[in-house]
């Protein structure tokens, strides 16, 4: 390279760095990577090397897995600027129905769980669109309703056949997660549906005026979120070998926290990205695991999670969208 071209390149870099908008974008996209490395290093050192052992990594993988499953569905809802609080209960309910149909074999049971999830997702979407009620309120209601059903039906616990244990293995999980993430990346970034989701989060009226069928897209996103909840419900059932009244509890908060930690704003829109799902799920899993190794009790862990959530939301929310917080 001649000196002139080097000079020119340097100038361009300098200009890039001076541009506040560009710089902000770059820094914001790097934070999650840095965060993940930081969390791993921090807990590796502070636990005296107990984080990165093969045994413990398997635990982390299990935790990451259940979060990723949910997050791959929820990411569509969030990119539209909505939230799905019903995910955990839907996951529990799908597991209940899946366990009830376990006599017909694992494949039927899985399909049933997915279908139940999709149906409740459609219900969420229809209620949100039909009643013109905020999605967070609607999904809070369905969260309570379906948790109630799960607690009654699974009060004594529902058992699935022991022979299904092979499904709860690391290779199966890795294959499922990789396929799901790839599918999500393709749908999210390279299809009309994914782009419409982002457009809705960026500006509802503008997207309608550009031909986006708003109501249909919202219902579809909730169906995907519900289906993901069904998938996650199926695998937690397989892992536990049974369904308990608490199956799936807290899934939505973990998923939300993961997505936010991954650097995606809860307001959705232009800065939504699937990368947030993977990075955030891993970050959260390492974090939770590290806290467990530290020996923190469950309640303190909840407190720590809450505090981190608040900080992450504060950092990632797109304030440009709103002048005054409602």
């Amino acid at each position: 390279m001649s000196e002139a071209t080097v000079q020119k390149k340097n100038n361009r870099l300098l200009e890039f760095w001076k541009d506040k908008e560009q710089r902000g974008k770059l820094v914001r996209s790097l934070i999650p990577f840095v965060g993940l490395v930081f969390i791993i290093l921090f807990f590796q050192i502070s636990t005296g090397g107990r984080l990165l052992t093969s045994n413990n990594l398997r635990t982390v993988l299990n935790q990451t897995f259940s979060i990723i499953l949910g997050a791959c569905g929820m990411v569509f809802v969030i990119s539209q600027g909505n939230l799905d609080f019903s995910m955990g209960s839907v996951s529990g309910f799908a597991a209940v129905v899946g366990a009830m149909s376990s006599g017909a074999g694992p494949l039927v049971s899985l399909l049933v769980a997915l279908a139940v999830g999709a149906a409740i997702g459609a219900l969420n979407g229809l209620l949100h669109v039909g009643l013109r009620a905020p999605a967070n309120i609607v999904t809070l209601c369905t969260q309570f309703a379906f948790r109630g059903v799960v607690q009654v039906v699974a009060a004594a616990g529902l058992i699935i056949p022991m022979t299904w244990a092979w499904l709860d293995s690391t290779p199966v999980k890795i294959v499922v997660a990789v396929i799901l993430v790839l599918l999500t990346v393709v749908v999210f970034s390279y299809t009309k549906f994914g782009k419409y989701c982002k457009a809705i989060g960026s500006g509802g009226i503008a997207s309608v005026q550009s031909g986006v069928p708003l109501d249909k897209m919202k219902i579809l996103a909730f169906m995907l979120s519900g289906t993901a909840a069904g998938l996650s419900g199926f695998f937690s059932m397989v892992r536990a070998g049974s369904v308990a009244p608490t199956t799936g509890t807290g899934l939505e908060m973990n998923v939300l926290l993961a997505i936010v930690l991954g650097g995606m704003p809860l307001s959705g829109g232009a800065n939504s990205k699937v990368r947030a799902v993977i990075l955030g799920s891993a970050m959260l899993a390492f974090l939770m695991n590290g806290l467990v190794i530290w020996g923190l009790n469950d309640l303190v862990q909840q407190g720590v999670k809450g505090a981190i959530f608040l900080i992450a939301v504060g950092l990632s929310f797109e304030r440009g969208n709103i002048a005054v917080i409602k």
Binding site: K195, A199, S202, I205, A206, S207, Q209, N321
Partner: peptide, 13 residues
Amino acid sequence: QEALMLLSSIQDN
């Protein structure tokens, strides 16, 4: 308010 997605890129719009 109605014609543009302000936080999106020129390309997306």
